[in-house]
């Protein structure tokens, strides 16, 4: 019998046996393989991993240890939470969920993959369009981007007719917005309802995305 420390099968078997919570059947199978090897019955290239396929997974992770199984659970929780929000919103607000715009021709709404927004409602992708042939730069400002003129720049249409557009996911509710032309001139959307409130002297526009939380 050769020195077991030099035998790869024996070395791997020892490793397996040192692992925590190896089950009894596995130990028996390893020992049987070793006995066969000692009797000269087993081939040199015995695959220890096939001999010991059932290294037991701990049924309950040791206390205080952050096991690998936590991550699938976390992911599953997130998915369940998102689905729950979506189902809840659909149940509480069983109404059609589409963006209602002043002019369907200029702002099409379509569902987006986000199941729920922070407010618990459903998000819709709303396209904003402005025709401004002389503008060098147009951006969209509103409650949804903190009225920050640098947050949502609009894209100039390649066909060169002065059309600027951008699509933004909006949660259910009433959203007030405006366009900023060349970083200086704020204008309401000529196609949309006007917001009645003029806090700072100029008009804004309104878009409504149906659904949403109750007070």
């Amino acid at each position: 019998m050769s020195d077991p420390r030099g035998d790869p099968l024996a070395r791997r078997a020892a490793e397996v046996l040192r692992r925590e919570q190896t089950d009894e059947r596995a130990i028996e199978r390893v020992m049987a393989a070793l006995r066969e090897r000692a009797n000269g019955d087993a081939p040199e290239d015995v695959d220890v991993d096939h001999v010991t396929p059932s290294v037991a997974e701990p049924a309950i992770p040791a206390a205080g240890r952050f096991s690998l199984t936590t991550w699938p659970a976390l992911a599953a929780a997130a998915v369940i939470f998102a689905i729950g929000l979506g189902v809840g919103a659909a149940f509480l607000a069983p109404r059609e969920t589409r963006a209602i715009n002043a002019d369907g021709a200029t702002r099409e709404a379509a569902p987006v993959s986000e199941a729920a927004n922070a407010a618990g409602g459903q998000s819709q992708l709303v396209e904003f369009v402005l025709v401004a042939p002389r503008a060098a730069r147009v951006s969209l400002v509103g409650e949804f981007n903190g009225w920050d003129a640098s947050a949502t720049p609009m894209r100039h249409a390649e066909r060169g007719d002065g059309t600027w557009s951008v699509s933004v996911p909006l949660g259910a509710g009433r959203h007030v917005y405006a366009f900023v032309i060349d970083n200086s001139t704020w204008v309401p959307d000529p196609q949309a309802p006007l917001a009645p409130e003029q806090w700072y002297g100029e008009r804004n526009s309104v878009v409504v995305v149906s659904g949403g939380p109750r007070s």
């Binding site: 407010a119 509103g142 409650e143 903190g146 509710g173 007030v176 700072y200 100029e202």
Partner: peptide, 15 residues
């Protein structure tokens, strides 16, 4: 949210 929006609109309009 609309109240935060009004305040931020004012800030960006330099009110």
């Amino acid at each position: 949210d609309p109240l935060v929006g009004v305040a931020l609109e004012g800030a960006n309009r330099h009110a």
